[in-house]
Amino acid sequence: MGLLRLRYLVANVRSFSKLNSSRKYESNVPKGHLAVYVGQIQKRRFVVPISFLDQPLFQDLLRHSEEELGFDHPMGGLTISCHEDAFVELTARLPCS
């Protein structure tokens, strides 16, 4: 019983540490926006309006990334696997509301 509790506590500490290390970017994300990491090899961080989540083009991009990467994102945030230029071009066509 004690060993299981220890494993549980260690897992929680690791999760908490990961959460705290990713919080350094929270202050850089304005209310109503979210940070995404874009790129195939080198990931670049973009801050986009949450309203993009309602857009079919952006949803398609997220579905494609989910199929390719799954839900395990090594950057600790939402990762989109596409070329930066394609992402910028796509998001430029989306309305910011």
Rank of each mutant, 00 (worst) to 15 (best):
Q40L: 01
S51W: 03
F87P: 03
K43V: 02
R44G: 01
M75F: 13
K18E: 15
C96V: 15
G76H: 00
V29P: 00
V36H: 01
L94Q: 04
H83R: 03
L69K: 01
Y8P: 01
R23P: 07
S65R: 03
Q59P: 06
R7P: 02
A35F: 02
E68S: 03
H64T: 05
P56Y: 00
G2N: 02
V36M: 05
Q42K: 14
E68A: 01
S81V: 05
D60K: 09
H73I: 00
P30G: 03
M75D: 05
F16T: 11
S27P: 09
L57F: 03
I80E: 03
E67A: 03
V36E: 04
L53M: 12
R14C: 11
L62E: 06
K18D: 15
V48E: 09
S27H: 08
V38K: 07
K24D: 07
V36Y: 00
L19P: 00
N20W: 01
R23L: 15
V48T: 06
Y37V: 04
A86K: 01
G2M: 07
P74L: 05
N20R: 02
E89M: 08
N12K: 15
S51D: 06
V10W: 13
L69T: 08
F58L: 02
L53A: 11
D60S: 12
C96N: 08
F58V: 03
E84G: 11
Y8S: 15
V29L: 10
D54L: 10
F87T: 07
I80D: 04
G32H: 08
S65V: 04
A35K: 00
I50F: 04
L53E: 09
I41P: 10
F58R: 09
S51T: 03
M75Y: 14
D72H: 10
H33Q: 09
F16E: 12
V10S: 13
L6E: 14
I50P: 08
L57Q: 07
T91A: 02
V10R: 13
G32R: 01
L3C: 14
L61K: 08
R45I: 02
E67C: 11
T91R: 06
I50G: 09
Y37N: 05
L19W: 08
G76E: 01
G2D: 11
T91F: 01
G32F: 04
L78K: 09
I41W: 09
N20M: 13
V38D: 05
Y25T: 04
L6P: 03
S17F: 05
S81C: 11
Y8A: 15
L34A: 06
R23D: 15
R14V: 15
H83V: 07
A92P: 04
F52C: 06
S15Q: 14
E84V: 11
H33W: 12
G39I: 06
R45A: 10
Q40T: 08
S97I: 13
R44K: 15
D85A: 14
S17Q: 13
D54K: 00
R45S: 06
L62P: 00
P49Y: 02
L6C: 14
S51C: 11
E84P: 06
F52P: 00
V47P: 04
I41R: 15
F52Y: 12
Q55Y: 08
R93L: 11
V10K: 13
E68L: 10
I50C: 14
G77F: 12
A11M: 15
